[in-house]
Write a protein that binds this DNA or RNA. Structure first.
Lengths: 251, 251
DNA sequence: ACAAAAGTGTTCCTCTTACACCCATGA
DNA sequence: TCATGGGTGTAAGAGGAACACTTTTGT
């Protein structure tokens, strides 16, 4: 019986594109690669990631990565795509991986995830302590291996989901102004939005509830704070969704 | 140095939900599981699948499965989701897999794919010779392991993509009537569609070109055949796509 | 003649778009 | 008083939903 050609010696990793939003726009969390021995080219940037452990789900592994890199649990987390090109990891990279993790494997297949985080001073402090940084999405230049592809893919999927699913609220604090929500849509989708129409559409959707609280110390009429009304959303989803089946095809 | 807990002994498989469309509706290709030794419960149904080989991409593996099960190359093929629950394969199943494939592994993670096939008499004959069958999507009762989940997930994704991307044409012959296209949308999305409005919308989209050929031997006014105008589609995609950013949210 | 589906047209109505305009606040 | 963004209103037009109606074929 000849030796099977089936690959039973794959290590599987997860890599997470963690998105945050602040007044300067959309950010992604990047970390510096660490080396076990020497520290050559120690400013290589990468997405947070990890190898999956025995008896661990991919989702669990991704959640573990998020916990380590941001200190947060219960973060919005979605699978994107698998990157399985046998040449995605060069022999040198493979050697680094094996040494760093103390494993032996011929191949590493990675599963992309994207996560959405509500940026707070605490989280920024936490990530800074870990040597991670929140980089403006337009300023990301070079990442190790195929992490640039993984990030680009995550961003594509984020944009699609943004237009169909109310995940925007995952990037905002509990209370937010409509302008802030509008800026978020603008930043993620890269488009200009008329604020009058945006306001009407959002309010008509019923997804958002007024709090009665207002901004203070702003050099214009104070804006009201709103919250995401999850129950209204769930109720709306139970009704049959209207089908604009030929509108807005992308790709 | 303690033994690493990192899982370096995963086998990775692909499982394909292959969809076809005929006059009776949407079908999926199912095969009988084969056993190396005995043939107990030999009518277990499953999706076509395979283990990935060394130096093989997941996409390649899925394409290989499609080639084997339908005889076709260059089929529409898209990744869906990874199923990585450590308990998705029971110990007995794992033993069957290892014996069948002549491998040893502790764990099998599978990657879902869905494929769209233009059903022709030749393909139906080919698949029948292979012992595979095209089962009405509503008639699928029980599949092995978590293949029911994989199929359900593929169907969800198919429905979403159907409304945003012109993949419908992948399921139709090169020339088709608008009624046929309408029936396809109806079948996949499970909705009633007004044929007058559908016709106008499709024609207005410019995605479809009249051939000047007509049906024959039908007991009603013969319908014209149309073809999918891929170039018009690509051109349309280069223009900025209109954004109905809060319409039709699902989930 | 009739059934059945092709194909066209029309009406009503909702939603989008693009603005104008007033309001409240800090500088 | 001015700049700035909050917040409301409106008019024009595009597009969707529902349905009536004519056309062309086989039986």
């Amino acid at each position: 019986m000849t030796k099977s050609l089936i690959d039973t010696n794959s290590a599987i990793s997860v890599d997470c594109a963690v998105f945050g939003f602040d007044s300067n726009g959309l950010k992604v969390l990047l970390i510096k690669r660490r080396y076990p021995v020497d520290d050559l080219s120690a400013d290589d940037l990468k997405l947070p990631g990890a190898m999956i452990l025995e008896n661990e789900t991919l989702q669990d592994a991704a959640a573990r990565v998020l916990k380590e890199s941001t200190g947060l649990k219960n973060i919005f987390l979605r699978q994107t795509t698998i990157f399985s090109d046998p040449s995605r990891v060069s022999p040198q990279e493979l050697e680094w991986i094996c040494r760093y993790h103390n494993i032996t494997t011929r191949r590493v297949v990675t599963v992309g995830y994207y996560a959405l985080v509500k940026l707070t001073p605490e989280i920024i402090a936490y990530t800074r302590r870990n040597g991670a940084r929140w980089v403006d999405i337009d300023m990301v230049r070079r990442l190790i291996m195929d992490h640039m592809d993984i990030l680009g893919n995550a961003l594509d999927i984020l944009q699609k989901e943004f237009t169909h699913t109310p995940i925007a609220f995952e990037l905002l604090p509990r209370k937010f102004t409509l302008r802030r929500l509008q800026d978020l849509f603008s930043a993620v989708l890269g488009i200009h939005i008329d604020s009058g129409n945006f306001r009407k559409k959002i309010l008509a959707s019923g997804l958002v509830a007024a709090t009665g609280e207002f901004e203070t110390n702003v050099a214009h009429k104070p804006a009201q704070f709103y919250t995401f009304d999850k129950s209204a959303y769930k109720k709306a989803m139970k009704e049959k969704f209207k089908l604009y089946f030929l509108d807005n095809w992308y790709y």
